[in-house]
């Protein structure tokens, strides 16, 4: 089946979509010179970052998902105005950063891509995985999302569509995974433990009940 790609066709509207903060540029400068001198290997740096990427940062996104699962009113708000709904929990992004929540359903699975590490909602999701920044991930996620998900060990039911969302500097996405079966009795803290970072990018699903982090 053909995946439905919902790529944003407005790249040409944003000549200055890409922008490094002063600190980003300085760190890149250090990395460049240290790599040239043979003192560091960017792959080794990525490997170090990767060892703690999933443990880093407040688990804000997981709490947003748990609340949406538990409170239909909050879920509605999130659907209408994710920026405001998420900000109401005290998790604010940077200036001008808009969030959109995309909800997985039995019919549709959502997947978020962007090669640029600037297009990722840090304040909600914590650090991005190293592969998220890799060019092959974005190109392949667009061309063959089912194949990419397969590599992540996610097998979707036949007939469930995949929508691919392209993150931009202005608009970032959080995937609201489907609530796992058998979690009716769980409170929001317990539910949040089932929400992985990858499930909020769409490269994973929420953990089954009884398999908390």
């Amino acid at each position: 089946m053909t995946p439905e790609n919902d790529m944003h066709d407005h790249d040409h509207d944003h000549d200055h979509d890409n922008h490094f903060s002063e600190m980003q540029a300085r760190v890149k400068a250090l990395e460049t010179v240290l790599t040239q001198k043979g003192l560091i290997d960017p792959a080794a740096i990525d490997a170090i970052v990767e060892t703690y990427e999933t443990k880093i940062g407040p688990r804000n996104g997981a709490r947003v998902v748990a609340k949406a699962w538990s409170e239909p009113d909050f879920a509605d708000w999130l659907r209408r105005d994710a920026t405001a709904a998420i900000a109401s929990l005290g998790y604010t992004g940077r200036q001008g950063e808009h969030m959109r929540a995309v909800f997985n359903t039995p019919e549709t699975h959502n997947l978020v891509v962007c090669t640029l590490c600037s297009c990722y909602p840090w304040s909600v999701l914590g650090l991005p995985p190293v592969w998220y920044k890799a060019p092959p991930y974005r190109s392949r996620a667009v061309i063959d999302p089912r194949g990419v998900l397969d590599e992540f060990g996610v097998a979707l039911p036949e007939g469930q569509k995949i929508r691919v969302w392209d993150s931009t500097a202005e608009l970032r996405y959080i995937v609201i995974p489907q609530r796992p079966a058998g979690t009716e009795g769980l409170d929001q803290d317990a539910l949040a433990d089932l929400v992985t970072r990858d499930s909020m990018i769409g490269t994973g699903l929420a953990k089954p009940a009884g398999e908390a982090l």
């Binding site: 970052v49 880093i56 940062g57």
Partner: peptide, 23 residues
């Protein structure tokens, strides 16, 4: 964090940290 892991708010911070560890 409570577990003793460093807390970063942006990736460049983690990269700077990782470069320091490596050096």
């Amino acid at each position: 964090s409570n577990e003793g892991d460093p807390v970063f708010s942006e990736p460049w911070q983690a990269e700077a940290f990782a470069m320091t560890v490596r050096l």
